[in-house]
Computed example of a mutant assay.
Amino acid sequence: MMMNLFSSFDPSTSNNLSLNWYSIIMCILFLPLSFWLLPSRINFLWIYINLTLNKEMKTIINMNSLMLMMISLFTSIFLMNMLALMPYFFSMTSHLILTLSFSLPMWMSFMIYGWMNNYIYMFAHLVPMNTPMILIPFMICIETISNIIRPMTLAIRLTANMIAGHLILTLIGNLSSNLNFLPLSLLIIVQLIFMSLELMVCMIQAYVFTTLMTLYSSEIY
């Protein structure tokens, strides 16, 4: 039971090769005719999503290169979340090794850039305004710890939400083996509802990850 329950998070295949990590390449095979070559509805929808992200991030950051990087980050996480819902694909974003590879390098680059180019502002950011003098040492410790754990919280938030949604779908699917027609029909309806919710979670988690990373980048200048 436990092996079947967590099999969707196992990156190994029947040949004991970790080939499922390359499943992100399948996006190139799925989208060429419907996205790259024709002005289809998927193309218009994706352009609308990118313009909406651009409009929201423009109020926070003014660097076009950083904005392009954040939109690319959202696209990568969203596509990996969506691929995890397809048959015979494992959930890549449910592994901390992948989510940390997104959050940790970007957070370290922001911190290095901020401390090297604007260290006075970085020191001032450790103490909130109107803090009593006696609480300043404690506030510096608290702000430093909260700043250090940011990449871990980003990675754990994304990983935990992906694991929770896939486990619910797997548990519901395991109940359908010994059911009659009427309970099975109700179970399929429930699973379709949870699948719709999981589709929204895929986009929301990618948006939350990108938005928080954008807010962290705005604190360095």
Rank of each mutant, 00 (worst) to 15 (best):
R41Q: 09
T159P: 01
N174K: 07
S103L: 05
L175E: 05
Y113L: 10
L45Y: 08
H125P: 03
I220N: 12
N16Q: 14
L167Y: 05
F78R: 12
S72V: 07
M111K: 15
N118I: 04
G165R: 08
N20T: 01
S14I: 01
L53D: 05
L17V: 14
E56M: 04
S185K: 12
S7D: 11
L158M: 02
C202H: 02
R150G: 07
L179M: 06
F78S: 08
R150L: 15
L96R: 06
M86C: 03
M129C: 09
L33K: 13
I140L: 00
P183R: 06
N130H: 09
N43G: 00
F181S: 02
L100M: 15
I168N: 04
A160T: 01
L167R: 09
F209C: 02
F90C: 00
L33D: 10
S12C: 05
I149T: 04
S196F: 06
L167Q: 03
F9G: 01
N117D: 01
T214E: 03
T170K: 15
F89L: 00
L100D: 02
L96I: 12
L184F: 15
S109H: 14
T93S: 12
R41T: 14
M213F: 09
F209A: 06
L66D: 14
I148Y: 03
T99E: 00
L212R: 14
V201E: 13
F110L: 13
M152V: 13
W115N: 03
M69A: 14
R150M: 13
I136H: 04
F35P: 00
L73W: 10
S146P: 01
N118Q: 03
P128N: 00
W36C: 09
L171M: 09
